[in-house]
């Protein structure tokens, strides 16, 4: 089998396993898995920029919450139905990532991280400032009656699970396609040696801007899906912590791998879930994991499997 068909097999196999898992797992775990698939979309969006393009952003919560509030506010205040509201979420993420991307790409290295952090902080404060509409930290719930698509009730666990799975699969296969396409190859070239890519005639800044926008829209799609499926939008999702989470998931799972973000999100979800049952200070595991991964597992779980055993892993 060629490496390409092996990676097709891996992606389709993962999707099949997830599709069957709903019948096997108890309700509690299938509910968790639905959340993990939604946050894995966020992680995959982040991975395109961090893992493949080599740009470490500390402000992706801005894009996530652009999607979250794009959908949430339209359904909450304007009584839109889910599908147009979802489109509104994507457009919000597109606009925000295009404007922010245009500005942040003027900086590099450490300045890039700090600038992304600051724009995200400004976004969070803006959500608090318009607390009249966004209800600030407290947030607002979306009514069950409005969360229906073509007769399907998105609050039903089964519908919610398969809705999350569909969007997860579209993102996984879509990003796997992008990464193999010339565009994705160029991103890796920029990550490896930006000067050389520029010398070969690529317009590096324009390509990086495209990567920021794709990454931002995918993150926004995750935010919109989250608001739609779980019926809640709040300013907590715009805090620094939600910019650090995708970094954590991608680092743990393996930056620059297609399934790493899902693996990292799954692992951290259950680790945090376990720790929060034990102690109030459950974020301690986030800190310890970040330090341990930087020290001992710089390629993450999937990345280490790739370097040690399976060279073909996408």
């Amino acid at each position: 089998m060629s490496d390409t068909s092996k990676s097709h097999g891996l992606h389709l196999g993962l999707i099949c396993v997830l599709a069957l898992a709903y019948f096997v797992l108890p309700a509690y775990h299938s509910g968790n898995l639905a959340s993990v698939m939604v946050i894995a979309i966020y992680a995959m969006g982040y991975n395109l920029l961090f893992g493949y393009t080599g740009l470490l952003s500390l402000g992706h919560a801005l894009f996530f919450s652009a999607g979250l509030y794009g959908l949430g506010l339209m359904m909450h205040l304007a009584d839109w139905t889910p599908l147009p509201a979802f489109a509104a979420g994507l457009i919000a993420a597109l606009v925000v990532s295009a404007v922010i991307g245009f500005l942040i790409l003027r900086t590099t290295g450490v300045a890039f991280m700090i600038v992304t952090l600051m724009f995200a902080q400004a976004g969070y404060l803006t959500i608090l400032y318009f607390g009249k509409y966004t209800r600030g930290d407290e947030g607002f719930a979306l009514q069950q009656a409005s969360r229906q698509i073509a007769g399907y009730d998105l609050t039903d666990p089964g519908v919610r699970y398969y809705c999350a799975l569909v969007l997860f699969s579209v993102t996984l296969l879509g990003l796997a396609y992008i990464i193999r396409a010339p565009f994705g190859r160029t991103l890796v070239a920029i990550r490896e040696n930006e000067e050389r890519a520029r010398m070969l005639g690529y317009n590096v800044t324009a390509i990086k801007l495209k990567a920021v926008i794709v990454s931002g829209v995918v993150s926004g799609a995750s935010g919109a899906t989250y608001a739609l499926l779980f019926g809640y939008a709040g300013a907590t999702f715009a805090t620094v912590q939600y910019s650090i989470f995708p970094l954590l998931w991608v680092l743990v799972g393996g930056a620059g791998t297609t399934v790493g973000p899902f693996v990292g999100a799954l692992f951290m979800f259950y680790l945090i879930d376990y720790a929060s049952g034990k102690t109030e200070a459950y974020l301690l595991v986030v800190g310890v994991t970040l330090v341990l991964v930087t020290l001992f597992l710089p390629h993450g779980i999937v990345g280490t499997i790739r370097t040690r055993f399976l060279r073909w892993l996408p």
């Binding site: 470490l56 500390l58 450490v110 991280m113 650090i244 970094l247 680092l251 200070a281 459950y282 974020l283 301690l284 986030v286 800190g287 310890v288 994991t289 970040l290 330090v291 991964v293 930087t294 020290l295 710089p298």
Partner: peptide, 16 residues
Amino acid sequence: ERTIVATIGTLYILQQ
């Protein structure tokens, strides 16, 4: 870059 990630981890460890 790795220092930033590691000090974010340290931040959570000290705080928690």
